[in-house]
Nucleic acid binder design. Structure first.
Lengths: 406, 406
DNA sequence: CTCACTTTGTGCCGACGCTAAACAAAATAG
DNA sequence: CTATTTTGTTTAGCGTCGGCACAAAGTGAG
């Protein structure tokens, strides 16, 4: 007398897409889920129930007050409070940062740290992972994976950092392997009791991912992000919701577009590259300032733009940099034809100093810019590299929740 | 008494992928189909039967002679002889060409034509479509769609030719609409009795598609194609088997990368662009030759390279162009990180004149070129733009054979 | 307040498209 | 000739989803 032999579960195939919709805030109700997934209400209901059973979302059946709309009101779909989190980590020139990031890109907890001695990767990443472990213990949450953002090109599939310029790490350091080893050593365990999977990405790349899902890049199909943090210029492209990192992870090395004919020499062997003509150091030099000892080059540049923009020298330097940046962006527009461009770091501040000037340079130097120009926007998320690192860890869950949490 | 109520057809979802495998020559037997699709033998058999019933493929059960392998020999899967064809058309500086292209990229019939007067689009495309209609009548084949390759950027989703430079057409000509109107006027009908669907693409873009499926680009995941036919330089990118044309069809406008600091002025407003520094006219000028009246600039350049390469001036000019081309390719490698690069037109001949020289320039100027360089190859298909135009028309059938032929 | 209407949520059934497994067929190897 | 290997086919069964009927929960008109 078999009682319940196999209850046929509906909506297995749509679990991942449904979770992605909740994650990016595009499905706040079952009715929206039905419309976005293109399935029947029955399937959408089963999907929501399954995600709730997995502890990922919460279905709030309470009435939401007068909505004004006709018909039976929808139940709200929220991220499950106290649900699983990803461990996010970031290393940069001045230190590191660990955080817990829940579904929806919400930063649950964060812990900064400094690197007094820019030591070897195992040392730094060990400290980051330990900070993350402390956050996890304090929160009592389940961890589904760990992501790390590094200021360097990351070669695929090896996961090595090719140019960790201002980290004093050796070129070609096996970052993914070291990170995984530290996860193993510290013992960050997932819901299955095994060490969580770990992921490493370039900081601008993962920041672009975060902006696409939770920030100023939402709903863009071809999102280009260009940013300059400390030294050099980084780029990223999100195509159809996925990072485009090229065949070996080395795409969007946008720092070596020529923007000044016969300009200053670049370490790549060429001259006048964006990398050396449009980063914070180039800006400070163009403004006739010598970099001071306190604050990063980015902070000094931002402060200069904010506080001394009335100074003609600063204003002129900003427009010189805007011109160089605009030429670089125009080259990228000609090759990639994005439907939106986000700017980060110094470029965000340059853009906000004179948005129309940058738009004009891009339009003038891109082939079809005058007919229909590309929307330029500023990055909108705090800590987008951290959130993006977490996106890497969340990705397997978004692709197939059952495989991870089933 | 219902006799055959609904015979449950197996393998509907895999029909398109299976047809693509036969189309690209990667599934010559049902056993290979089973392996490539990742389904059971039962499903693969049903898929093959369905495709045969649709008249697209032929299952050849005859023994193939001693194969040397153990076990029961596979039946061969061939393109169905006499099966449906796509109408392919190409317009270029000197004239036009129409062809019928079957599954597998095989050119079944072709008809050249000249444009004595570079007339308006409707005139030219009317003549092309009429030539295609004649081919269709003579062949007695079924037509599943029509594709057109034009030497101009094609804006999406409007389907307008933005810069039909050497066609004497107005910029912004509604090529897709005019082509569809001519298909309608001449009455090219599909299997359903309606006028066939029509498609328009840039010639280098569709050539890249053809090379990816039937030529030197097979199995590349990130394929970059750069070519120069008459004037200017065109590019294309095939990502995961699909053309990447950007958000508005305007990506891969590679002609405006700077390759000569303060070089000759370009119509884009900048200087030293690939477009004016690495096309056939630039090569003839670099070699000290004045373009003659007979033969296209490309033909004159090719003949010069083939017949007078011993001339030091020609040799030197070739290396000047190779240097400029290599710098441009290196810039693209930094941004796109392809796993293969194909060269067409003049660039093919320059590459074949001195392959190592071009490889060295690309490696020297790309950021990670010295560690692992990108394979450079020559385009391998005759008439790759024609075959590529047909690929546009075949695409709906490859995506869902039943929807088109069911 | 009641009734009509609109929209959302759920249970049941059947269809579709696949896998699994057993069997049949066609070759090679010894 | 028999054993083995690989391929092709048939049958049964199962998981997932759409369609449909019905229930539930609101708005709006009178």
């Amino acid at each position: 007398m078999t009682q319940i032999r196999t209850r046929l579960e509906r909506g297995r195939g749509a679990l991942g897409p449904a979770l992605s919709l909740v994650h990016t805030g595009r499905a706040a109700t079952r009715a929206l889920l039905t419309a976005e997934l293109g399935v029947t209400r029955a399937t959408a209901g089963a999907v929501a129930a399954e995600l709730e059973a997995l502890g990922l979302i919460r279905v709030d059946t309470r009435p939401l007050g007068p909505s004004g709309a006709q018909g039976r009101p929808s139940h709200r779909l929220d991220v499950a409070p106290g649900g699983p989190v990803a461990l996010a980590a970031q290393v940069h020139a001045d230190g590191f940062r660990a955080a817990l990031v829940g579904l929806g890109g919400e930063i649950v907890a964060t812990a900064p740290g400094s690197m007094t001695v820019p030591a070897d990767p195992a040392h730094v990443l060990g400290a980051v992972v330990e900070a993350g472990a402390a956050l996890l213990r304090a929160s009592g949450r389940v961890c589904i994976g760990a992501g790390l953002a590094v200021p360097s090109a990351v070669a695929e599939p090896e996961g090595t950092a090719l140019n960790p310029l201002h980290l004093a790490w050796p070129a070609g350091a096996p970052v993914r392997q070291v990170f995984a080893e530290q996860i193993l050593r510290v013992g960050i365990l997932g819901p299955d009791g095994e060490p969580v999977p770990s992921f490493v990405g370039n900081d601008v790349n993962v920041a672009a991912l975060a902006e696409h899902r939770h920030g100023a890049g939402r709903d863009a199909e071809h999102l280009l992000v260009v940013a300059s943090g400390h030294r050099g210029v980084g780029g990223a492209l999100v195509l159809g919701g996925r990072l485009h990192t090229g065949s070996a992870g080395l795409a969007l090395e946008v720092g070596h577009l020529t923007v000044v004919p016969d300009g200053r020499p670049c370490h790549c062997g060429s001259r006048g590259c964006l990398d050396v003509e449009a980063d914070p150091l180039a800006f400070l030099e163009a403004a006739g300032r010598t970099p001071g000892p306190e604050g990063s080059l980015l902070q000094q540049s931002r402060d200069l733009l904010r506080e001394e923009y009335a100074d003609p020298a600063v204003r002129a330097a900003a427009h010189v940099l805007i011109d160089r940046l605009g030429r670089g962006l125009a080259g990228l527009v000609n090759v990639l034809n994005p439907d939106r461009i986000l700017l980060g770091g110094l470029h965000l501040h340059l853009f906000e100093a004179d948005p129309e000037a940058l738009r004009a340079v891009v339009a003038d130097h891109s082939l079809w810019g005058r007919s229909g120009s590309v929307p330029l926007l500023a990055c909108a998320l705090d800590h987008n590299s951290l959130v993006g690192a977490a996106e890497l860890a969340w990705q397997p869950v978004l692709d197939d929740p059952l495989a991870v949490l089933g």
